[in-house]
Amino acid sequence: ARQGNLLTEEQLKNQRFKLPLDHNYYQMEVEESSKSMKDYFDLLPNELISVVISNLPPKDRLNLRLNKRLQAIEVEAKDYTRKMAITRSDPDVCKIKFTIVDAQEIVTERSHSIRRFSQFASNQVYKEISSE
């Protein structure tokens, strides 16, 4: 049943954003509003920030969780990691290393939100995969 979650090359490509993204940003007079802007990311709608985030590796994405809005966008944004190694450093903690390595547990061709990766880390999904 979990075969449906495995993404083919074509599916991964199709998951990339398609323009135009839906938002009403264009009415904003940026030059005027930016003078009093406290936060430069206020200039971008969530959809466009999400695209920027999708271009970042996980560590940078996590560093961007600087306020509630960015955190919410980052949590929902997809990451397109093809391979990752799940390593266990102690019985309760499972860490994910985002490099292609010859480790025993490698999950390929998957695309998940960081929340999902977090679930991997806490071993919930890993158990499901192990039992496939």
Partner: peptide, 26 residues
């Protein structure tokens, strides 16, 4: 989008916050 991502890449949280004047409400 890649140019903005490149501006962020490799920076620490506090550097990103300073660069984009991000207000932390956490």
């Amino acid at each position: 989008s890649q140019t903005i991502a490149n501006m962020i890449h490799g920076k620490k949280s506090d550097e990103i916050a300073e660069m984009f004047n991000i207000h932390c409400d956490l």
